[in-house]
């Protein structure tokens, strides 16, 4: 269903701490309908955005008390682009990790309790890219906006 667009971009900064990150994720998702994104697609976008922002807090910015991040959303044609930038450490080898599927055919005690993050990002975003510019990480998630009915 077409949602009227009342806003062209969203930009929300956050201190690299879990509670701040949660507030930024919730605030971003709540504004996505203003960019014409349907409620049903907001759920998929939240899955990817939450993992990306959690990675910033838990990995890039771990033990860096003054680190911060920013979420910027833009509509470009049929795509929603979400840029997540942060002042933390670069990704190892400046490369995106491969989001591989966890092995669940294991005994109960060996079931994985983590390592789903990049897999979920790759499953929900249409395209994922990463670069490092001016001492900051920049992760770009693209989503094809759903066909408007």
């Amino acid at each position: 269903m077409k949602v009227p667009r009342s806003q062209n971009s969203i930009s929300i900064g956050f201190a690299a701490k879990q509670i701040e990150a949660r507030l930024a994720i919730v605030a971003t998702i709540s504004q996505l309908p203003n960019l014409g994104i349907s409620q049903s697609q907001c759920g998929d976008i939240e899955i990817a955005l939450a993992e990306a922002v959690n990675n910033v807090v838990e990995h890039a910015c771990a033990d860096l008390p003054d680190a911060s991040g920013r979420i910027t959303c833009l509509i470009k044609g049929d795509f929603l682009t979400i840029e997540i930038s942060d002042t933390g450490r670069p990704l190892p080898e400046l490369r995106l990790p491969t989001g591989s599927k966890a092995d669940l055919s294991v005994p109960l005690a060996d079931l994985p309790e983590g390592g789903f993050g990049w897999f979920l990002i790759c499953q929900t975003a249409s395209n994922v890219s990463y670069d490092r510019i001016n001492g900051q990480n920049r992760l770009i998630l693209e989503f094809q906006t759903e066909a408007k009915a």
């Binding site: 759920g43 939240e46 899955i47 939450a50 993992e51 959690n54 994985p112 309790e113 983590g114 390592g115 789903f116 993050g117 979920l120």
Partner: peptide
């Protein structure tokens, strides 16, 4: 909403 940490 449940993220990967919540799933874990």
């Amino acid at each position: 909403f449940v993220d990967s940490s919540g799933l874990g």
